[in-house]
Structure formats: C-alpha cells, structure tokens
Amino acid sequence: MKLPRGRLRRSRVVTEPRDVLADVLDRGLTGYAVFESQETLLLDAEGRGVVTFADGVPVLAYHTGTDRGGPPALADLAVPGPYHVSLYALDAADLEPAHRADDLRVPPGMPAERLAGDPALADSTRRAAPADRRDAVERGGSTDDAGDAQSAVEAFLDDTEKIEAIKDQARAEARERAAEWEF
C-alpha cells in the first residue's frame, strides 16, 4: 500500500488501540494511523500496522511486516500494547487511489470490534459510516458466516507463533510478579 506522507496530527504512546479509534472518530480524521508495538519481542522489526480513515471511519488495514491487508492485517496488528501511534491527516483526494484497493478494505466497525473489543464504539463508527459502507458491513458479516472470508479473530488464532509468544510473555510476567507480590 502506497500512501502520500500526511501532516502529522498526533504522535503518542497508548496502551489501548480503542483510544486511538475513538479519538479518530471524534476528530472525524481523514488520513491514516500508524501503529507500532513497543513490544518488539512479538513483532518483526518491520512490523507496523496502518489503518486509513475517511471522516473518522476506518477504510483500509495493512500490515507492513506480514504484507497482509484487510481483516488479517487487523489480526497482525493485535499484539499486546503499548503501541506508539502516529496520526496523519491527508486530503480525501490523496487517499482515493489507495482506497481503490478492495482487498485491503475492512468493514467500518471491524477495527473497533476486533482490535479494541468495543462493540459500542463499533456501533457508533458504523453509524458514522456512509450508507453504502454500512450496507457493505452486512454483506461482510454474511460472507464471514459463509466461511468465505477469514475473520480477523480467526486470522489471529491461526498465528500460533504469536499466540505462543503472548503466552510465554504472560508466564514470564507472572513468575516475576510472584516474587514481587510475595505469593
């Protein structure tokens, strides 16, 4: 995915991707967000996730480390935080060529639902989406049911290596804290 460089609006470290998605929706940002996990253990050196937005509503998802787009990119992005996130604004016209890539598209509410685990935010995002994209969500949902499309959650669950890394990290943390907490 090629995007023209946007105007940096915000750059910060967050623990929850939810905060970023909610912030973008509130601002009605047109542009993109770059997510970079601070947990290098779980990521390739090149691993950055990019989500583009039109008026605050997610359009595309892409992961530079895995070169996957659409729902699977959301799974690639879903590593434990904190993340370093940069938000860039772009004119709609500059995003338009990239937004023609149908294979990178995600339903409007999917990042909030699958990445942030927040159905309420997903609902407000869907409400903010243009009518033609709201319809697309429903089609996306039924495609999902039919098993034609691999959902972001399933793609996440198929990534055994990443899940084992999350488990290893949690075990190490639990052992370390047992000493600290005098269990």
Binding site: A78, P80, R114, L115, A116, V153, F156, I166
Partner: peptide, 8 residues
C-alpha cells in the same frame, strides 16, 4: 468475548 483483545 470473541474479539482479539478479549482472547488475548
């Protein structure tokens, strides 16, 4: 919940 953050 069947979401990535909840499962993780």
């Amino acid at each position: 919940q069947p979401t990535i953050p909840a499962i993780s």
